[in-house]
Nucleic acid binder design. Structure first.
Length: 107
DNA sequence: CTCGTGACTCCCG
DNA sequence: TCGGGAGCCACGA
C-alpha cells in the first residue's frame, strides 16, 4: 500500500462481487477522490501485476472496457462473461443491471 | 524535489 | 449529436 487513497481503491475493487461491475469514477469517489478516476486505472495497473484484484470488473463510465484489443480487452470480456456478465451489441455492459456500488457504510 | 504519464471524465465547439 | 481538448491527482524515475 502506498497511501490510504490507493488502499481504498484497492479495497473497493476487491469488494466487487462476481457477476457485477463498477466504474472508475465510482471507485475513485468512494476512495475519496471523485476526480481520481485515472488514479484508479493506475492503481489497477499496478495491482493487476502485484495483487490479485478483479480488475476485469472495472469498466469506464459507459460500462465498456477501456482497454485495447492488444492490451487485455478480450481477456477482461471473457472473464466477465465467465462470471455471468453479458455484453450488448455494442460490447457494453448494462450498468442498470450489473453496475455495483461499494458499501456506503451507512452514510 | 520536479517532470511526465495514464485502463478517465467533463465541458465547450 | 458527435468530436476534440483540458483537467485531474497520485505514483514512478
Amino acid at each position: 500500500m502506498k497511501s490510504v487513497f490507493t488502499r481504498k481503491i484497492i479495497d473497493g475493487i476487491a469488494a466487487i462481487p462476481a457477476g457485477k461491475i463498477c466504474t472508475y469514477g465510482i471507485i475513485a469517489a468512494r476512495a475519496g477522490n471523485p476526480s481520481g478516476a485515472r488514479q484508479v486505472a493506475r492503481v489497477l495497473h499496478s495491482c493487476s501485476g502485484k495483487y490479485r484484484l478483479p480488475w476485469h470488473r472495472v469498466v469506464n463510465r459507459e460500462g465498456k472496457i477501456s482497454l485495447s484489443k492488444n492490451a487485455g480487452y478480450v481477456r477482461q470480456k471473457i472473464l466477465l462473461e465467465g462470471e455471468g456478465v453479458v455484453f450488448d451489441e455494442c460490447d457494453r455492459i448494462d450498468l442498470d443491471k450489473y453496475l455495483w456500488w461499494p458499501e456506503s457504510s451507512g452514510d
